[in-house]
Simulated assay, not measured.
Amino acid sequence: MVESFFYSLGVYFEPRYAVGRNMLAKNTCLIGFVDDVYEAYAFYEELQYFTDAVPRFEIDVMDELPDDNQRITYETML
């Protein structure tokens, strides 16, 4: 999280861009969380459900996800 904030500080360094800096830091953290779900916390078969759920972008799909980490990440993305 600290790294993403420093990255956003390099992009938006002026004080008047604080909102953009916060949004960029949050989005960078979310991308990191999704990357961790794909790399460390699931098997290939489980990731097929998550990959199919992301383009649908519906809250009802959360019940179909097999893992708690995927459910939390999907809910955060929504």
Rank of each mutant, 00 (worst) to 15 (best):
N22F: 08
F43Q: 10
E64W: 05
V37D: 03
G32V: 01
R16S: 07
Y17L: 02
D35P: 00
T28V: 08
F5P: 02
E64G: 04
D67K: 03
F33L: 10
V34H: 09
E45R: 15
F33E: 01
V19G: 07
R56H: 12
C29N: 07
T28L: 08
F57K: 06
Y74F: 07
D68R: 01
R16C: 13
P15K: 01
V11W: 04
Y17T: 06
M62L: 14
T28C: 09
V61T: 11
F50W: 06
R16H: 07
V2R: 10
D68I: 03
L65D: 00
E14Q: 14
V34K: 04
E3A: 15
T73K: 00
G32P: 01
V19E: 14
Y38P: 00
F43C: 05
G32K: 15
T51L: 13
T51M: 07
N27C: 11
Y12H: 14
P66M: 06
D63K: 10
M62F: 07
E75A: 13
P55I: 11
E3H: 15
I72F: 02
A42G: 08
T76Q: 12
E75C: 08
M23H: 12
E46R: 01
D68M: 06
Y44N: 05
Y49T: 01
V2W: 12
D52N: 13
M62D: 02
P55K: 04
L30D: 02
N69A: 01
M23S: 10
I31V: 12
D67Y: 03
V34W: 02
F13D: 09
Y74W: 02
M77W: 12
F57V: 09
A40H: 10
G20H: 07
Q70M: 09
F6V: 12
L47D: 03
D63W: 09
P55C: 06
A25S: 09
F50D: 02
R21L: 06
V61S: 13
D68E: 04
T76S: 13
Y41M: 04
Y49L: 09
P15C: 05
N69V: 09
L9V: 10
V19A: 13
F6D: 11
Y7C: 10
L65G: 00
E45F: 08
T73M: 03
R21Y: 06
V37I: 11
P55R: 03
I72S: 01
Y17P: 00
E58I: 14
L24S: 08
V34F: 05
S8L: 02
A40Q: 10
T76D: 07
E14I: 11
Y41D: 06
V61F: 07
V54W: 09
